[in-house]
Amino acid sequence: MAEPEEDDDYMADLSRFLPPEASGPLPKKVSNSKASSVAQPYKKKPRAPNWQEQRKIDRERKQQEEDEKTLANIEAPIPQSNVGFKLLKQMGYTPGTALGKEGSGRAEPVKVDIRRSRAGIGREDPSKEKRKREERRWEEEKRNEESLMEEFGSRKKSQWQIRRVVVNYNKAKAVLEQLENKEVVLPDKSEEEGEDGEEELITEEDLQEILMKLRDEHQYCLFCGCQYESMEELLSSCPGIDEDDH
């Protein structure tokens, strides 16, 4: 008896169900040159002036050209072919000298100041006045700043001097107690401050008093840092009482 034929596995090969053109290699994607190009940063184009701005620019340029031409014509000397120059020479005028009797007049012509503003005669140009106001304000601010810096420096210097007086007083007090064979007690914060929590005020007179006591009674100079054998040696070797003398 013949064996039954095995069923075909229709899922084994799917390529036979694909169309002929799909079974081949995939076509390459054509790249767009515009899309593949690197994106350039956006640059804002300068705005073109409108007709009013362009008219103002043209008018200012024309006025500047006219002013330069006018000043060039004024500064140019009068040629000798000029009728007025010939009349002056006939009346005895010498080129380069002043006008008037015995040359007492003006030797140079009156200078011309071209004004385009609507300010009255005798008043400066508003732009110049504004510039002067700004300069005055800047100078005033500079003076105020210098004054503040000077005040700050003097205040810091005063604070430093007060601090130096307190430090030297504490040193002198500790040395005096040591020379008097007393127990040296470092100043406590509670002792330096008063009942209200304020620092004890030590003046330069207090410092001078304790320095003189060290010199008179113990022949000791705080700033020299030594005790001399006699008062004569102290006076001859020590440059002075104050710290600045040392």
Score class of each variant (00 low, 15 high):
Glu177Ile: 11
Ser147Lys: 14
Glu75Cys: 09
Gly240Asp: 04
Val110Leu: 11
Asn73Ile: 11
Ser81Pro: 02
Asp206His: 12
Val175Pro: 00
Arg61Lys: 03
Gln208Val: 15
Lys28Gln: 12
Lys156Leu: 10
Leu148Gln: 14
Lys101His: 09
Ala35Trp: 00
Glu199Lys: 11
Glu195Trp: 10
Asp242Ser: 15
Glu5Val: 14
Val83Phe: 00
Arg61Trp: 02
Gly24Ser: 07
Glu5Ile: 15
Asp113Met: 11
Arg106Ser: 06
Pro239Thr: 04
Gly92Gln: 05
Val112Phe: 03
Glu75Val: 09
Pro239Leu: 03
Glu195Val: 15
Ala39Glu: 06
Val112Gln: 07
Val83Ala: 08
Arg155Lys: 07
Leu214Thr: 01
Leu148Gly: 07
Phe17Gln: 04
Arg133Glu: 15
Tyr10Glu: 05
Glu139Asp: 10
Thr203Asp: 00
Lys86Ser: 12
Ala98Ile: 01
Leu148Lys: 15
Leu26Pro: 05
Ala76Gln: 10
Pro4Val: 10
Glu204Pro: 04
Met91Thr: 08
Leu148Val: 14
Ser236Thr: 10
Ile210Thr: 06
Lys142Gly: 05
Glu53Leu: 13
Glu145Met: 15
Ser158Met: 11
Ala48Trp: 02
Gly120Phe: 07
Lys213Gly: 04
Leu87Tyr: 00
Gly84Met: 06
Gly96Val: 03
Glu205Val: 14
Arg131Asn: 11
Lys111Phe: 03
Thr97Glu: 10
Ile57Asp: 02
Leu176Pro: 03
Glu75Ser: 09
Glu3Thr: 08
Asp58Cys: 07
Glu124Val: 08
Trp160Asn: 10
Gly24Ala: 11
Gln219Lys: 12
Arg133Gly: 11
Ile202Cys: 02
Glu102Arg: 11
Tyr169Lys: 05
Val38Ser: 10
Asn144Thr: 06
Lys213Trp: 01
Leu14Gln: 03
Asp206Leu: 03
Ala119Asn: 05
Asn82Asp: 15
Ile202Thr: 09
Leu26Ala: 12
Lys34Ile: 07
Ala72Asn: 06
Glu5Asp: 12
Glu75Ile: 09
Ser154Gln: 14
Glu183Pro: 08
Gly153Phe: 00
Phe223Asn: 03
Lys45Met: 09
Ser104Ala: 11
Asp206Thr: 02
Glu53Ala: 14
Gln54Thr: 13
His218Thr: 06
Ser127Ile: 13
Cys238Arg: 02
Ser230Leu: 01
Leu222Ser: 01
Asp245Thr: 13
Ser23His: 03
Glu199Ile: 08
Glu232Val: 14
